[in-house]
Nucleic acid binder design. Structure first.
Lengths: 224, 224
DNA sequence: CTCGCAGATGAATCTGAGC
DNA sequence: AGCTCAGATTCATCTGCGA
């Protein structure tokens, strides 16, 4: 049995552009947003060229959805948005137009990245912007804004920028209640949905690429 | 015996505004800049006891010195500038006008900070922007852009925003050679100068507050 | 000397009283 | 109603005292 929210089925990954999908969601009906948008860096490193096609829309900063995400979010609820240090300024600016930014959480990854091997430090972190609509209180004990969580082994990836489910679980634990509806505008590998399912939350997810909708849906069905 | 650089004595902390001081330094004569400017956040330390007076110029983003820092820096050399996530946007923008930004290094502090105790994560990091003029190669083995270094014990502070000497040592090791001249535009507690001295580098430092010039100079004389 | 415990502090921010 | 300001507050961590 699947419930609906507006015209959309919940607990389902919709093959739909985020801007189209958000139009179908009523005002103030979402309890939490977890967004991992294309960073706007045309991300396709050498070794990955063979495995994945370029991410759609990744050459531009795609931020139109933010205003609509704010509209559908309930007062007193939170948005978490992934970004990277070199495009952080853009995202900070656009998120701040609607939301109140409370933290820039650091995901400290294990291992290093590539990049300029002799002229730059090895990239080992990503940013997670934590922003709120109104006054939002975090659940449980106060924790730090540096999160050290190991990456998934790359061979298990079904999406090039896949993040550990553990991170989504931390977000969901701190900023939502059981039964809440989590909006996942850029579903990708579906890790956020897996976390929501595991923790007794409902979700609405979008992705524009058929292959990820399918792969993530399969992953969800296999998840306990 | 003290050498000079232009009209300024090296290995000395000058009681001088940074903009005045920089005028006295010739073009392309500095090998490394380590800057810990007022963040522009009007910080007052010690909510319980006002141990320190307010930081001068901390109510504005003070960035005029950056263009002159670029001028005095040699080609192929680096600038490291401290900031915080919520004013990073400003600093990134201004540094990028002259320099090439290569990394946003995370200083992961131990312990937590104050702030919004129920509605925000505990602040446990600061940003260190690493930027270069021309092509700069880092010394030694490639290391990560997340630096976990414990704070100095608060009771030992001689400046309200004092940072561990270890951090300056890491910067100096990766981005300078023995005998090089390190510019320290905002000297504060003098930790950057202590690191330079320990590692066989020369330095030129400025601070506008008499009390910190004196305290840091004393600290330097005591340092091995 | 070692261990435990009380006390202090942090590149803060929210709340509510008082004007 | 709007502004300013004092007071309270978490948690990890380190110091220092005393058993």
């Amino acid at each position: 049995m699947t419930a609906n929210l507006g015209k959309l089925a919940v607990d389902r990954i919709h093959h739909m552009d985020v801007n189209e999908g958000l139009k179908l969601i009523p005002d103030s009906s979402i309890d939490l947003v977890i967004a991992d948008p294309p960073y706007g860096i045309n991300y396709r490193s050498g070794s990955r060229k063979r495995k994945f096609t370029a991410i759609q829309n990744d050459n531009i900063i795609m931020a139109d959805w933010l205003a609509d995400a704010f509209r559908v979010l309930k007062d007193g609820c939170a948005l978490y948005c992934w970004t990277r240090w070199d495009v952080y300024t853009e995202w900070h600016h656009r998120i701040a137009q609607n939301f109140t930014i409370k933290n820039c959480i650091i995901w400290q990854k294990n291992g290093g990245g590539m990049g300029d091997l002799r002229g730059a430090y090895s990239p080992a972190h990503e940013f997670l912007i934590f922003a709120v609509k109104g006054r939002h209180l975090l659940n449980g004990k106060r924790i730090s804004d540096v999160w050290a969580v190991p990456r998934d082994p790359a061979v298990t990836y079904i999406h090039p920028t896949q993040k550990p489910v553990k991170l989504a679980e931390m977000i969901i634990e701190k900023s939502s209640q059981p039964g809440d509806v989590v909006l996942v505008p850029f579903c990708g590998s579906g890790g956020d949905c897996v976390a929501a399912k595991r923790m007794g939350r409902r979700f609405i997810a979008f992705d524009v690429e058929e292959q990820y909708v399918e792969a993530a849906s399969n992953r969800l069905n296999e998840a306990a």
